[in-house]
Nucleic acid binder design. Structure first.
Lengths: 234, 234
DNA sequence: ATAGAAAGCGAGCGCTCGCTCGTTTTTATG
DNA sequence: CATAAAAACGAGCGAGCGCTCGCTTTCTAT
């Protein structure tokens, strides 16, 4: 029917998770496994956002999903695996989304930067609970998971830094240190999902936010921004 | 001897905590109470940064401080109080630090903004483990503590927004929405303590960071930045 | 030197946690 | 419809949690 189902719908994300962690899930039927994984992960994201992952017990999770303790354990082999499932899916999604830049856009550093900013914010909007989870919970976790999160963040910054450097080489951007500039852009993107309540309270929607961040960054980095009071304001 | 002891040394901070929470501490001698509170809080900050506050047990804390379980309970009346002690000290310190602007600086919006940026970054540097704790643990806080944290963050943004608005009124800054601009500055300041490891790895020190953020923000907001490739780069 | 107060001690209480496993229910197949 | 495989169940295990309290040690003032 619908030719292109939403690739960021929970079921679609969980189908990829199942594929990646087939050995951790003892339920054989893929459709059933995907469906129940979606129930479980939806519940764990919701509960964790309220009380944190560590403070969410498997009994809470059993109650929220309607499954039993034993039932849960046929969909993952331990609480830590559940965390890794979510984290890796987030990491893979970022990598995939930022690499999907149209070739003609990638040719122009300014357009590429605008595209990256918008793509990142839109991705984190589509997968908001996932990103909040990965960001908020990653620090308290076992070294391999923590390394995965850190490495992913660094990779994202490298993508931005590469575009900034290409632009600097062509005189489009003026910067002292592309790494520092990229490092400063990152928290602006993250703030959209980390402090979502703040922006909601102020009536700032996603389009306004993308426009605001883009104007902020371009005014800071472009070599020749339109000068004077008529420039696009933040 | 030293006429002005460091107001952000752990002992000084703990003296203020003791004053504020005198009723929760059953040890009577102020000097002894301050000293041991410092040992306890230093330990809890260290352990929490590694494994999170909730995952730090009072037995861990007893081992780290050399006190016994019962001994700990003469310095606070419950784990949650320990958390509130640290959080309120952070909130009060921010409020105090940002309000301490010299009168002549406050007259000039551009100078005031520069001063605020530097003051905030330097404060979070001096109290780094405290800020990391307050920021990272905030989501797991009980509702009253969470409200305190949110309100404090909002208050900080209001300070910035007020300066931006004063500057915009005088034509110094060009902005569409002072609240959004202030909201975008905040994560830049927070990144210094949240992602400290990232900047350390890149050899970016505090002076470089302050200069980078200041240049970034001023280029984005000043109505008449020096134009062309010779502008102060980020 | 000594007695009363202050501070420190740590085994133990009630509870919840992640996880297991023998059993029951559901589902798919001939 | 019978039957075996798949999935779900949930009481129970050992461990660790926050916290208490009767007792001992240390300090302080006479």
């Amino acid at each position: 029917m619908d030719a292109r189902p939403d690739p960021y719908a929970t079921e679609a994300l969980c189908a990829r998770i199942l594929e990646r962690h087939r050995d951790r899930v003892s339920v054989r039927k893929a459709e059933r496994a995907t469906h129940n994984l979606a129930r479980i992960i939806e519940a764990v994201l919701k509960l964790s956002s309220r009380q944190g992952f560590h403070e969410t017990s498997l009994r809470d999770l059993a109650r929220a999903t309607g499954l039993s303790m034993g039932g849960l354990y046929t969909y993952f082999d331990g609480k830590e695996t559940l965390l890794l499932m979510i984290l890796t899916e987030v990491v893979e999604s970022v990598q995939g989304a930022l690499a999907a830049v149209p070739p003609d856009v990638a040719e122009d550093p300014r357009a590429h930067l605008r595209w990256l900013i918008a793509a990142h914010i839109r991705l984190t909007e589509a997968m908001q609970p996932w990103f909040v989870f990965a960001y908020m919970e990653a620090k308290g976790f076992p070294p391999p998971a923590k390394r995965l999160a850190t490495e992913s963040e660094l990779a994202t910054e490298r993508v931005f830094a590469a575009v900034l450097e290409a632009g600097a080489a062509r005189g489009v951007f003026t910067l002292g240190d592309a790494d520092l500039a990229a490092a400063l852009i990152k928290p602006l993107l993250q703030d959209w999902y980390v402090k979502r309540a703040k922006y909601a309270r102020r009536g700032i929607g996603i389009e306004r936010y993308i426009a605001g961040v883009t104007a902020f960054v371009e005014r800071a980095l472009l070599t020749h921004p339109v000068s004077g009071p008529d420039r696009t304001p933040v």
